[in-house]
Amino acid sequence: MLKLDSVSRIFPGGQEALRNIVLELAQGEVVAMVGGSGCGKTTLLRLVAGLDAPSTGSIELDGADLHEPSADVGIIFQEPRLLPWLSVADNIAFGIAHLAREEREARVSRALLRIGLAGYETRWPRELSGGQAQRVAIARALVTQPKVLLLDEPFSALDAFTRASLHEHLLALWETDRVSLLIVTHDVDEAVTLADRIVVMQPKPGRIFTEIGVDLPRPRNRRSDEFHAVSRRVLDALDGSLTEGQSSAAPGKTETAAFWW
């Protein structure tokens, strides 16, 4: 599926944002990337989205080179980025303008139903709450039926309750579409809730520090011991990623790790 091979990105100013990233995403896999600020998570997503080009290395989707925005790759930004002059329905249909009218309308109404906003067709974006707007953004990205959906800290601006409900929404959509998800987040609980695999990044330059598999059945109980055990492993890894060169992450350092951002 999605394959990143020794990808690096050096900005024109000479700043090395990413070094030698090797990452593969299987069909329908959910991968979360966590890491401190400056570890190039957002840069990596922009490369996969085709909004930026890698300095070296290659990014392939099903064998085809990704060097510009592709219909097979959708992206959700940190903010919904709805177009304020379009109604909710027109926003969702923004990327499928080339389709026939009936097909477009069918997809939009189905998407609205699935994100729980049926009846919101003619609303303006300004009339939506933050969580509703982000759901519309997710619908807009999914109606084009991409193979990979990239999410750049999509829920970081929302309160905890809204965030939890959006996690459920996203997983429900994922279960029917089986789209691969690559999620950048700084919320460890979010990563453990959503991902099959968590990639821990290391800053300056951005590199992959380690990967942690999350072998928990869904839906995941955030209060279970298994959940906490995985969270702890991720936090330990994050700690280790910031103190590289010193002794590897020691158990019992989770208190400091909790404040790594």
Binding site: A49, L51, E68, P69, S70, A71, G74, I75, F77, E79, R81, L83, F94, G95, A97, T144
Partner: peptide, 20 residues
């Protein structure tokens, strides 16, 4: 950021002008 939405959905220059 709004222009970028147009890029993500692969709008041509003309479409970007008209739709954004």
């Amino acid at each position: 950021k709004v222009i970028e939405v147009g890029r993500v959905f692969r709008l041509s220059k003309l479409e970007t002008g008209r739709r954004i």
